[in-house]
Design a protein around this nucleic acid. Structure first.
Lengths: 341, 341
DNA sequence: CTGAAAGCGCTTACAG
DNA sequence: CTGAAAGCGCTTACAG
């Protein structure tokens, strides 16, 4: 029903091979036939059947992106929309389509990726998170299938990865609070099985130790990337006899939860408690007071991940297997001691 | 290199046809061979080649989603992540993959969709917006290709669509402000070529007229779905000799821009100006004061759109070609006159 | 209940 | 510079 290469060939009086070569820009085709064939393709409204092409060429011009299983929640956080925006922009620009998949459990995730990979649906995969001992990474590694991880893998140090220097980022956040005169600084972390939680924890501790500051174990709590986690952490901290005067929060949304709780209880930020978060999502700037945040370049992470993956897929040489996207501290009122105190 | 149906057939001592039938659950295959073939597939790690299957079956188990060309900006708004979340959840649940595409101009958009459709990459398409006289819709219609529009089309009233009753929604928002005692109510609209802008404008006017309230033309401004638009509208309004006391804003992000500007200038909300927005994104609740908003069920829009499309693709009967997702007003401090005024 | 054969729409050595 | 032929991995009438 739709027009094929054979229809075009017939009408142009050439063989299907020739039409195929015209399409792929084969060098040894005469300008005359090229012109004629193109004209007829136009005329007949020919469009290549991607499936047929993929079947023989073993290439799909498509990259897959695995959303974390908790995408439902995580999407509430702007992190994912922002990173996808980076990926879709760059992949479209490179002529690749984007396929999204997800699963509600670890085994479903593996299954989803397996379907994409073994079913030859995509040429490469982007993973949007890094957990400890991840079976998806193990699978991809074993299949020797092109993929890039947004984050860092401890088990597979040699894979392609785009990440921030999260140790340094948390270090910078903590240093900033120390520079503001704080000595009792807490840390609201994320899920402990995420590498990013670990890395930021390390940076926090490093800054504290370097400044010879005490780290009370009760100043460190772990939660989710959710407002509620911040809220809970806040009420825990504020009931401490010897509570911190400043907090580093693993994510802006968590920082926001803290801020909200404090406001409800009548505390003032930064006077009663100073705050720094991560990601610099719009909420941070818009909160009152605006929340200081480490901007980790989310869009850039996605854009670069896509770029790296497509290079790998094309077999281009990768100069750097680990790319670090720079971060920067955006200091705002939540962590700046003003003189009208 | 990867194991095919033929490899499995050989090892099982049956024909490829039989293997194929086992896979597709053909009824007239003996339980014995079914068991044996399945065992061997398992053993050999067989996975069907999706491309080959698509090529012959003319079906892809994939739906496409066209991101609006201004996705870059629009993604800043939680609308898109939320709607995609709804789509991806439902499509995954139905066993369909999701393909995303976009273009930077109208012709690129048409081209992107054409590639998906003519290249037989997807079984159906979801359109995330509705403009007046949209060539993408025209193309899909002409091809008689399954698609659903999130929104409303004036040119093609009979297509599958999932939408809010935006006239009613804006009517409700305006009524709410009138009920709070306001008589001078302004409207900050969106791009005039979007149907949603038009519909909400109609609802606003309807409510005003019904209440016999005056509508000054200078109380209506048009802009983008951006904070800056709200900011600009605000400064325009506040410089008016006879300015409105309340505003309906086309989107929460716009309302937020208004709020921010007012706060900067030392005005109080709702005392100096009351506000109602649309979408009920997290920002609205988190602002101070929290912003009243019409919750339009964004996730639901996406979920339902996917559900409807997949039904259409499968040829199931669609009881309703236009599905309306209910909205509800979430009244918050920005529009509620408190007595401590 | 199962097999042989044709075909989906394309690409690509192999010849010439 | 171009064509005939084989083949990518699957499905599906058609027979039996």
């Amino acid at each position: 029903m739709s027009v094929t290469i054979i229809d075009v060939a017939k009408r142009a009086g050439v063989s299907p091979s020739t039409v195929s070569r015209v399409i792929s820009g084969h060098p040894r085709i005469s300008p005359a036939t090229t012109r004629k064939v193109k004209e007829i393709m136009q005329e007949m409204g020919y469009h290549p059947n991607v499936m047929a092409k993929s079947l023989v060429s073993k290439t799909t011009q498509t990259i897959g992106i695995l959303l974390p299983r908790s995408a439902e929640e995580l999407f509430l956080n702007l992190f994912f929309s922002e990173i996808i925006r980076g990926v879709v922009t760059q992949s479209t620009r490179s002529g690749y389509d984007l396929m999204m998949t997800t699963g509600t459990s670890e085994s479903e995730e593996v299954e989803a990726v397996t379907r994409l990979v073994k079913g030859r649906r995509v040429d490469g995969v982007i993973l949007l998170y890094s957990r400890k001992s991840d079976p998806v990474i193990a699978f991809l590694k074993e299949q020797d299938f092109p993929f890039v991880l947004v984050g860092r893998s401890e088990d597979y140090p040699d894979i392609l990865a785009v990440d921030n220097n999260n140790v340094q980022a948390a270090y910078d956040a903590t240093r900033h609070l120390i520079a503001q005169g704080h000595k009792r600084i807490g840390f609201v972390s994320g899920p402990p099985n995420l590498i990013v939680s670990r890395d930021r924890m390390i940076g926090y501790k490093k800054a504290m130790q370097e400044a010879s500051l005490d780290i009370q174990s009760e100043w460190i709590v772990e939660g989710e990337f959710l407002q509620e986690s911040g809220y809970r952490a806040m009420s825990f901290f504020m009931n401490l006899p010897h509570r911190p005067t400043a907090l580093v929060a693993i994510d802006d949304i968590v920082a926001f939860g803290v801020l909200r709780g404090l406001t409800e209880l009548g505390y003032k930020v930064p006077q009663d408690l100073s705050l720094v978060g991560f990601n610099n999502i719009s909420i941070s700037e818009l909160a009152s007071p605006p929340i200081s945040s480490i901007d980790i370049g989310i869009y850039q992470l996605g854009y670069t991940a896509s770029q790296t993956l497509i290079r790998a897929v094309k077999g281009e040489s990768i100069h750097q297997r680990h790319i670090i996207i720079p971060h920067r501290l955006v200091a705002r009122e939540s962590s700046l001691h003003t003189n009208q105190e």
